[in-house]
Simulated assay, not measured.
Amino acid sequence: MPNEPAEQWRRVTLTSDGPILVEGPVEVVLDDGRIARSDRFTVALCVCRRSRVYPWCDTSHRARQRRTA
């Protein structure tokens, strides 16, 4: 629970053009209250919301080309 002391620190890695990487296992509370769990050693959380397996990243963000100025 959010207010309980953590047993162990979790490492979160922010990437400039991709998902957020979190050392697992993790429990993600979605905005509608559902809970998604993963026991993998590292999970990739989708930040673009294009993933078909949201909240997990499926690399859908790579399909879109960035514009150059």
Rank of each mutant, 00 (worst) to 15 (best):
G18P: 09
R66F: 11
P5F: 04
N3M: 11
W9H: 07
P25S: 06
S51G: 08
T13Y: 11
L21M: 11
R64G: 13
R11H: 07
C57W: 01
V47H: 10
D58I: 04
V47G: 12
G18K: 01
S51C: 06
C46G: 07
R64S: 15
E7S: 13
R40N: 14
C46T: 05
C48T: 05
C57K: 03
V47C: 11
I20K: 04
R49M: 09
R11C: 06
D58E: 11
D17A: 14
Q8N: 09
N3H: 15
E7L: 08
L21N: 09
A69S: 14
A63H: 09
T42G: 00
Q8K: 06
R11I: 11
T15F: 10
G18V: 02
A36E: 12
D39Q: 06
A63R: 10
A36I: 01
Q8L: 00
S60F: 00
V12W: 09
T15Y: 09
S16K: 13
A6Q: 10
D39K: 00
A44E: 06
R52G: 15
E23K: 04
L21Y: 06
Y54K: 01
T68H: 14
H61T: 05
S38K: 02
G18Y: 02
D39L: 00
C48A: 08
Y54F: 14
G18H: 03
V22L: 08
C57G: 08
D31F: 05
V28C: 02
V47L: 14
A44K: 02
A69Y: 09
V29N: 03
G24I: 00
V26I: 13
R50L: 12
T59H: 11
R34C: 07
V12N: 09
P25D: 08
I20A: 10
C48M: 03
V12L: 15
V53E: 12
P19I: 04
A36P: 05
V12S: 08
A69V: 09
H61R: 02
L21I: 09
N3V: 11
V12G: 10
V43M: 04
L21W: 03
R62C: 05
A6T: 06
T13W: 05
Q65V: 10
V29A: 10
L30G: 05
S38F: 02
Q65A: 15
S60Q: 03
C57V: 07
I35K: 12
R37V: 14
P19K: 04
G18N: 06
G24S: 06
N3W: 08
R40P: 07
L45H: 05
R66G: 15
E4Q: 13
A44W: 00
R40E: 15
S60K: 00
V12I: 15
R62M: 06
A63S: 14
I35L: 11
S51A: 08
A69E: 15
G33M: 11
E4H: 07
R67L: 12
D17R: 12
D17N: 15
A69K: 07
G18F: 03
E23Y: 01
R50S: 12
R67W: 02
A69N: 13
S60I: 00
D17Y: 09
Q8G: 05
